[in-house]
């Protein structure tokens, strides 16, 4: 029933391809994938390759980290050209130099970061890595 599971989505992301769903009913895009269109709930979707380009909308620098992570690092959300927002890390900015005016509104491309399998997760961890264009 799934056109694109989380596993397939991350396998593609690791290969440098950002996949998503395009709804054949309302035309909107859903990424990361779901069973149905995030906007209208239709299951009539097709898998498409997204541009992988977006703009940072907000961010934070994590300074007290969960078990398994080393602080500081930047977590951010970017709005893709196709509409959806993604959450990931910003890969090419020093966390101690991250400020609202040099992060928010910046154009990014989407890559992937892979973490080894930790406790309480079924697989290795994959997360989008945003690269701010020079």
């Amino acid at each position: 029933m799934y056109k694109l599971t989380y596993k397939q989505y991350f396998e593609a992301l690791k290969e440098g391809k950002l996949l998503g769903l395009k709804c054949n009913d309302c035309g909107s895009y859903t990424a990361p994938p779901k069973l149905c269109c995030d906007k209208c709930g239709s299951t009539n979707n097709e898998v498409v390759t997204l541009s992988g380009k977006g703009v940072i909308k907000t961010f934070t620098v994590i300074r007290v980290a969960p078990e398994g992570y080393d602080a500081p690092y930047i977590v951010a959300m970017a709005e893709l050209e196709e509409g959806p927002w993604l959450m990931g890390n910003i890969a090419n900015v020093d966390p101690d130099k991250a400020k609202m005016d040099n992060i928010i509104g910046k154009k990014v491309t989407v890559g992937a970061k892979v973490l080894p399998k930790m406790n309480y997760t079924p697989d290795e961890g994959v997360t989008p890595a945003f690269i701010i264009a020079e």
Binding site: M1, Y2, Y6, K7, L35
Partner: peptide
């Protein structure tokens, strides 16, 4: 299963 708990439930 290679699917997540949420994906299995959704199916």
């Amino acid at each position: 299963s290679e699917k997540s708990s949420i994906e299995m439930f959704a199916e």
